[in-house]
Design a protein around this nucleic acid. Sequence first.
DNA 1: GCCGTTTTCGGCCCGACTGTTTTCAGTCG
Length: 561
Amino acid sequence: MTENDEIAAMLEEFADRLEAKGVDYKPRAYRDAAESVREASSDALDEPTAIPDVGDAIASKIEEFREKGRVEELEELRDEMPVDIEALTRVEGVGPKTVGKLYEALGVTDLDELEDAAQHGRIQNVSGFGEKTEQNILEGVEFARQSAERTLLGKSLPKARHLVSRVEELGSVKRAVAAGSVRRRKETTGDIDIVVVSDDREATADAVTDWDAEVIQKGERKTSFRKDDEDVDLHLVKEDEFGSALQYFTGSKQHNVATRNVAIDRGLKLNEYGVWDDETDERVAGETEEEVHEALGMEYVPPELRENRGEVETARDGELPELVEEEDVRGELHSHTDRTDGGATLEEMVAGAEERGFDYLAVTDHTEALGVAGGLTDEELRALADDVRALNEDVDVRLFAGAEANILKDGSLDVSDDVLAELDVVVASIHSGMRMEEDEATERLVSAVRNDEVDILGHPSGRLINSREGYPYDFDAVLDAAASEEVALELNSNPHRLDIHDTQVWRCVEARVPVAVNTDAHTPSEYDYVEYGVATARRGWATADDVLNAWTVEELEDWLG
DNA sequence: GCCGTTTTCGGCCCGACTGTTTTCAGTCG
């Protein structure tokens, strides 16, 4: 978790606890502030009042938190109501108010006690609760225990596609599109939203809830169910509402607020059903997203940009960049074979690259220090390079001999410069000694970038989403070094990594540091990861020019040379 | 608690859905 995330979580807890107490308005203020902090740069924390939605009161809490690691007033709220509010509110249908009521009435403080109270029928006796609610809570507890984590895009996107195709097969359905954070290609997703155009919404809802799924709610416009540990919302709309509904349910929430304000500015009203002229009440758009954007006087905003990071203003000015697309990617600059920890031979990896129509492929197996991956000795590395160059004569894809060298504790690499100098492409990455303070990690990365033989800095943060945080480092310092040394930063496309992050891509674009959208493929099928990397690059406003491996062979050779 | 080109005080997004209600509160997105 970044410091921004930690502070945002602290503010959200404030909001929940105030709401549980029945306080009005303040919770919204804390929630707005939390969201703004999450979106702000890490530098912004030094002057919190400059962050939108953060005033003097919340700013002083942020300062207290950064200084002491705790906030006195939050501690008091915790003492007052000692409940695990974060866990309890994960239960479907249980929000802060319910937590407050159940604590007052039954003394429930965590998931175990909630489950126990439900099992013994105590909840239905509390005023405002009934048998049904108690049953729903009981069913929701187990899921809440497991679902602390958001789902990787690498899992939710294929699942969403599968569900969409199943929905599309229903006779009553004309169209179905996945919306929400899946469509925005956020690195992790909460639930899966699908917008469905149907002639017969009731029949569609019935058909879907007949699947092997646990139905959460079923209405005329919205049907929710849980399938294979994933929450799915179907938004059932009429054909002429499709565009506005898709726009609305794609979000993000903050982007929607911003677009709604554009509508207000122009004397229009925007909601999920369409766009209306305020004065005449005439409906002016709604059937397609393009039409909705046009009515608002905006360029079409690609879903990946819809995070309220300036895209609304830029779209009004007609100055959105032409984002990189998967077809723009011409090659792969980070791949492995079975000579180290890959699952396929050199020949198979090359054949896979040819099949994908890549113009070039760099074979970059691990080097010696990475024992667990069978890292290559200098000799083996030279032998691989010879084989790569020999194979290059016979294939339709330009092969580069390379290595993924390890950045050691002192910032040096585990391969001598002489050997690296013989290679075409050198990726340098940290694979060990990851428990570091920020200064140490930054120094290690910067000295690797300063090494003349290094072309690309691999997965800079070392994080694995949901399982390893990665070391903290000063991204600006690394970026500065990369800019002056003409080194590219990798955007590792493995859905577990997505490292660098989308907001860092944006910084690279600004600093004119090329981004290498690499898959780090260990088998030919992993070249498919490029989709996730490209999506993340798009979320960082990157064009094809900003992506190193979208360049032609000649441009790339020029840069490497 | 935050915000402001109608504002330094008086507002805070809003619609769908559910369950417990006799008209609404809470949750969710």
